[in-house]
Every structure is written in structure tokens, then in C-alpha cells.
Design a binder for these strands. Structure first.
Lengths: 405, 405
DNA sequence: GCGATCTTGTTCGTTTAACGAACTAATTCC
DNA sequence: GGAATTAGTTCGTTAAACGAACAAGATCGC
């Protein structure tokens, strides 16, 4: 029961049914490939005639291709259809505090070439470096014609529509136009997004087949803590493009001071820096955080390793992180009732150590038995969730439902 | 960028463009009435010919009617169109712990007859009583043919799709089928919904013209604390129909025990019962709450009155409620970035007393200047927000966007 | 080996609705 | 009273879904 926006609606033309059905068909192929035309007609409850027309459209523009004939117990053997992903390339960029990662990938998320360099904090310098590297990357792989766009994720708040970074404290950016600069330098379409939101997007579009729950929250725990909220198969951006900042939920008024200026935030209890500070016996504070960000000492990965080797203090520090994290997740569970919560970041390397603490809190706080059973699923950092998010920024629009009404 | 649900999609037929455009047109009339056909054509960027056809459709089924000729500086005078609301009636029901309210209203929210009775906690008895009263109400007002449905709001979690009450602790209901029972007894379509979600729905559909922000949260503070979350012009229900339960955000681990079993919940700090307990000098607890629910002593309204008359303890109790409420709202602001937050419940009678405390907390906790400026708008209890929510349950489907894709 | 049967995929005439131009109606201006 | 202007309707054209008929390719029974 959506209200039509009378200030910004899309009315239907006589081409609209085709657009809609074309996109449904494309998604059915994506989900069930290999699949025959007759099967598509049955699934869509539509005549085989119109399926032929729609498939010809998609074949012509190269979205799908015909594969082998399949076996059949009786009758003519069907010619199977697949979506084309292997030679549709994407440049994915992940800008983090310490390093910037650059990946050449295809639409399905298969990695082709990955490189990284020390992050430059001057936007112009960073864009120049990126443009140079993108050009050479495309040339080396003979992919100049096949690259359909650039997806870029950042630690900060981004206005996806205009391609502007509103505020990225880690980079020291405020109101920086990123998209146009990179688009001009490379001649490719550029999409920019906040990292947790992009991770959520990747889960919608690049998750394992048929996994796709349509209501979930993706929580990232790294130097900061953020979330991508998905409602009805769509990432929630909010009125000012800053939705998902669950890192600054106040957990206790007497908690440690947070980088945001408040005290006792979820982030000040559970970020990598907070866990590290707790392990080292410091009270977390902006000053301590800045010290730790320099990153020449112990890392969270080290803490996890030591906990596994029997270091009691490391174990306790991680367990505390789990407990606070569970408290934060319980708020999300009660407030948004997602089908599941995904958890990303280095901390997932200690999943078996923190899970009991997380689960204890979420179950204690959940209001219904169903909510208490909300699965919390770790996503290992090795799967490069942020770069997958950047890929999804380019791939998703190709498959998304056309906006109508 | 919504993903198409390949398990539950609606494909477009050749009647789909008509449905979509018809609904857009109806909403434009609703928003801009009185409005001419020519003006509609301009706003929709569509030919005047098709507008004639669509309007004839709507005239025939009685959704709109033709009014007077308007003045025009030059040329033929346009015949203005209006949506029909005055003789389209709704029965709105608000079930609360102490009393149940019953309102006969029209589609625009104009009240025709309001009555109430002591709530019966046995579902069957309540439905029987309701059915009897509804029949007599319709007969008295000669409205038997014009009533288009029944909307019912409850304090608890509701599966709107099946019409089942999952859990309503205040009423002591668990897994109770409400819709079918009332529909059979009255022969009318019945819609059931959780109260805060319905209040949010009313704001989408019955708010002042052109007010309609599409991303907001409606927070109700009464015996409990709940919220209706609206994203992109649609109420978020969550995977298990229990989204919006922000009342049990943990604010402080050493806080008072809550009815939900946890401690330090937003509700245990800010509900009417919590405010009352604070004023009376009790530590809030389930036992205290049950005592206060009997409701033969002081009420929140009394506390507000006394604060206005200079009672320092009443003033302090309310201010504390405001401070905790602000803390809770800041979580919503950072997490969902709504365009605004509406606040409903008796506490709004003390708006001028609590606003500074609320604002101080939300501004202190907000992450961006825009978020800090998120308006918090009180809705006076006198406007019967819950009954308006019940009306919206029936009226909204008539105007909602058709689901496509 | 050959026709019956069954399934896949295409073709084509029909129907529906948007589209757009032409037309009628009503009003003001000169 | 005619030109100009705006509102609203009519109708021929076009695009796309719909559905029936048909062709292609496979198995099965005798």
C-alpha cells in the first residue's frame, strides 16, 4: 500500500508493460538459469508467444544468450537461456582509511584483477591516481569496450543521486563531488555509495541464488560501525541520505567517549578500535582512537589470534564486544524486524568466540519468539563484501524493477 | 532500485497502464481538487483525450464527481473535478486497555458519530458487542449501503495480511483471529492493524494536503511506547509483522525493570505509566505498572496539570520523560534519517514542557546538521490519531499505487 | 518404419489502450 | 461578429498483450 508521490511520479505509457515484463523475465532467467522459454511462460503465466518476443529483445541487446539444448522425457528439446555476465565488466573501488582497493570484475562478482595503493586524502589526487590505474587496468585486460561502469564505496555519508560525499570523517571530506570528476576522467558511468549500504546492496543482488530475503540489515564492524537497511528488496537511504548510522546508538550514558562527540555509542563499544582499546586496557576515547588509527601496533586480527591461543584478556575483550553488539542488534531486531542480520568486518574472524554473547543478548531482548530466532549471519572479510558492494552498484540497475506509479 | 521478487511478482498485462494512470490521476485530483481535466493532462504530461477516458472511468465508478465551472481569464471555462469522500463511510475501532472506541466517519476523516464502552477482554464477547453496536450505528445513520469497511487498531502485534493478532499483552491475546470473526458478523470487509502503524498510515493518507513527506516515523507514547516507520510512502511491517517496536530500546542497563522482562527500556522510562511512577516516587517495575493500570488514582494528564500549576516534582518527572524520549528519538533519527518524527499520545499535552529536553538530546546525538534539524512534531490526542489510523486502513487501499513488478 | 502424441517455439490475426491530430464547445478580446 | 484562446471529445493510428493455429523436434507404440 504505497502512496503515489504526486510531485514525482512515473506514469505508464504503452511501452510500460513490455518494460515491466521484460525485467521480470530477465530476473527469472537470472534466478533459474538455465531455463527454457516454455518454462518462463509457465512461471509468468503468460503465453509462449510473448515470451518469444521478450526473449528476442533481450537476445538482441545481449542481456541473455542461448545455451545448449536440454534433455526432455518427451517432446521437442528446449533451448536453454542464460544471463550474460562473463564479458560484462565492472571497476569496483573501495576507499578505506589506510588503503584504496581497485578490482576489475564481471557482473557475477568473479574477480579478474585486484590491486591497492595507499589512500590519498586529497580528493583530486585520489581521482587522478584512480583514473590512471583504471585506464591501465582496462588496457592490460583488453577490456576497454566491455566495462559498463565504475562502482565506488566510501566510509561516510553519500548522496547517491548526485554523487556527492556529504561527510566522510575518516577521509576528512565534506561536500566533495566525486562522481562527475571520475566520470569525466574515465568516460565511464560512476556510482558512489556509502559502504554499509553497498554491502547490503551486494547481498540483494549478488547473494547465493534464491537466498534473497527482502528484509534484512547488513551491519559492518570495522573502524566504524554502520548498517545498510533493506526493506522490501530496496536499500533505505533516508530523507537526507544518511540512514543506517546505527553506530551511534547510545548504549550507556556512562560509556566511553565516541568520535562523534557523544558518549557510550555502540561504535565506541564495538568498533575494531574500541575492541583494541579494551584489550590494551585503555578507556576508549577520540584521542586513543586517533593513536590506534596510525596502526603500527596490535590490530584486531592480532587480538583474535591471541584469544584463540588462550590469551584471557583478548578473549574477554572480544566477548565484551559481542555482548554490546548483541545489545545493538536487539534494537534493530525489535525496531525493524528483519528476516536476518548479516554481519561484516574483521570481527567475523572471531565468530565462534563472540556468537554466544551476541545471541544471549538478542534473545534476552527480543519481544517475540520469532524475533528471538532472527538469524545473525557472519560474512567473512575474505569475501571482500565492500568490493562486491561496489560491483552491485553497477550491476543492480540492469536488473532492478522499473519504477512505475 | 528495487529487486523483483521472483517468487511473488505481479506481471503487467495490457490493462496495467490504465490501472496505473487511473490511480495517478485519482491521487492528483485528491491532492489538487478542484482541478480540471486540462490541468490533469498538463500535470501528467499526457494527452487530454486519454484524460477524458480515465475520468469517465472514475466518474462511472463514483470515485470522483464533477463540480462547478471555474472562472478562466480566457477561453472555455473548465468543469472542476473532486474526489467523492462525504458519502463513503467507514467504521473505525480503537481497542485500548480501558475502553474501546467506535467511530462512524467518512473517507476524509470527518467524524459522524463516536461512542465507547468498557473493553471486554474475551475476543468473542468483544466481537459480539462490536457487531451489535456497528449494526445499530449504521441503521441509525441510514448508512447500511454506504459503509465500505471496518478499520480496527489494537495495542499489539498484528499480521495485517491474515487479520490475526499475534500478541497483545495489554489485552492478554495471543494468536487470535479477529478479521474473519468480525467480517462474518457484519458482512463488511475488515482491516486490522497495530496502533502505531495505523497512526503512521493516517499521516500518509489523511494528513493535511501536500504535507505528505514519504519518510517519517510516528512514535506513540501511551501505556506502551511504539512506532510506525514509513519508508518511501509505505509503512514498514517487517518480516514477522512486528516492526516498529522501538519501545524496548535499552537506554541504560541499570534502568527500571520493564514489562517485557528486560531492564532500562525506552518504554520503562517514558510511557505514561513510567512518568506516573516517577512522579509518585516509585521505581518503575511490572508490579508498579499493573497497580497503575487499574487507573483509579492520578493519571498523566493530572501530572501535566500539576506541572503547569507549579508542582516542581511533576515538572521534573515530565522533563525526565522528555530527556529519555529524546535519547530514543536520536536513535531513530540516526538509524533511519526520517524527514520528520511525529509524536502522539497524552504526553503531547505537555509539549512545551518536554520539547526543550527532547530537542537537547536529539541535537546532541545527531550526526549531521540536517539530522539535528529533524522536526519533531506533536500530534494532540484530541485529534484522535488512532481512530484516524483505523479510517486510513479502509481508505488507503482505494488510493494506493497498484503493485507492479 | 510410420503414425500418434507430446512439448517447444514461432507466427499471425484480434483486442486493448495509449497516442496524437482534428474537431467541437465555450469564452474573451478587439 | 470574427479572431484568438482554452477546455473537452472523437477518432484514426500504433504498440503490445493475448490467444489460437502452426511448425519443429522429440518419444512411444505397433
Amino acid at each position: 500500500m504505497r502512496k503515489i508521490d504526486t510531485r514525482d511520479f512515473r506514469r505508464a505509457t504503452r511501452a510500460t508493460p513490455r518494460e515491466v515484463n521484460r525485467q521480470i523475465l530477465l530476473n527469472l532467467v537470472r534466478e533459474h538459469q538455465p531455463i527454457s522459454r516454455a518454462d518462463l511462460a509457465r512461471r509468468m503465466r503468460i503465453g509462449r508467444g510473448i515470451v518469444t518476443t521478450l526473449v528476442n529483445d533481450l537476445l538482441e541487446e545481449g542481456s541473455v544468450y542461448e545455451g545448449a539444448l536440454a534433455e526432455a522425457p518427451r517432446g521437442r528439446r528446449p533451448k536453454m537461456l542464460h544471463v550474460r555476465t562473463r564479458d560484462r565488466l565492472v571497476i569496483a573501488i573501495d576507499v578505506r582509511f589506510s588503503r584504496t582497493y581497485l578490482l576489475l570484475s564481471d557482473f557475477s562478482g568473479t574477480q579478474i584483477a585486484l590491486e591497492s595503493f595507499r589512500t590519498l586524502f586529497d580528493p583530486d589526487a585520489l581521482l587522478n591516481e584512480l583514473a590512471t590505474r583504471i585506464r591501465s587496468l582496462l588496457r592490460t585486460h583488453g577490456a576497454e569496450g566491455n566495462c559498463e561502469g565504475i562502482g565506488m564505496v566510501l566510509p561516510g555519508m553519500v548522496d547517491r543521486a548526485s554523487g556527492r560525499v556529504l561527510n566522510a570523517p575518516q577521509l576528512g571530506w565534506r561536500d566533495v563531488q566525486i562522481r562527475s570528476g571520475l566520470a569525466e576522467r574515465t568516460g565511464l558511468p560512476v556510482h558512489v555509495e556509502n559502504a554499509p549500504a553497498a554491502c547490503a546492496l551486494a547481498h540483494i543482488w549478488l547473494g547465493p541464488r534464491g537466498s534473497g530475503s527482502r528484509d534484512f540489515v547488513y551491519v559492518t564492524v570495522s573502524d566504524g560501525v554502520g548498517a545498510g537497511v533493506v526493506v522490501n528488496g530496496e536499500v533505505v537511504r533516508g530523507h537526507g541520505h544518511t540512514a543506517g548510522e546505527f553506530g551511534h546508538i547510545p548504549l550507556r550514558s556512562d560509556g566511553p567517549r565516541c568520535l562523534c562527540g557523544s558518549a557510550g555509542c555502540l561504535e565506541a563499544h564495538t568498533s575494531n578500535l574500541a575492541t583494541l582499546a579494551r584489550y590494551l586496557g585503555h578507556e576508549f576515547s577520540p584521542a586513543v582512537a586517533r593513536e590506534l588509527l596510525k596502526g603500527d601496533g596490535v590490530t584486531v586480527e592480532d587480538v583474535i589470534l591471541r584469544a584463540r591461543r588462550g590469551d584471557e584478556r583478548a578473549h574477554a575483550a572480544l566477548e565484551d564486544t559481542g555482548r554490546y553488539l548483541g545489545l545493538g542488534l536487539s534494537i534493530i531486531i525489535n525496531g525493524l524486524n528483519p528476516a536476518q542480520i548479516f554481519l561484516g568486518g574483521e570481527i567475523t574472524g572471531a565468530w565462534d568466540l563472540i556468537e554466544p554473547a551476541i545471541r544471549a543478548e538478542t534473545q534476552r531482548r527480543a519481544l517475540t519468539r520469532e524475533a528471538a530466532a532472527t538469524p545473525v549471519v557472519p560474512e567473512p572479510a575474505g569475501s571482500l563484501p565492500r568490493l562486491r558492494g561496489a560491483i552491485a552498484l553497477v550491476a543492480a540497475p540492469v536488473f532492478a524493477a522499473p519504477q512505475v506509479g
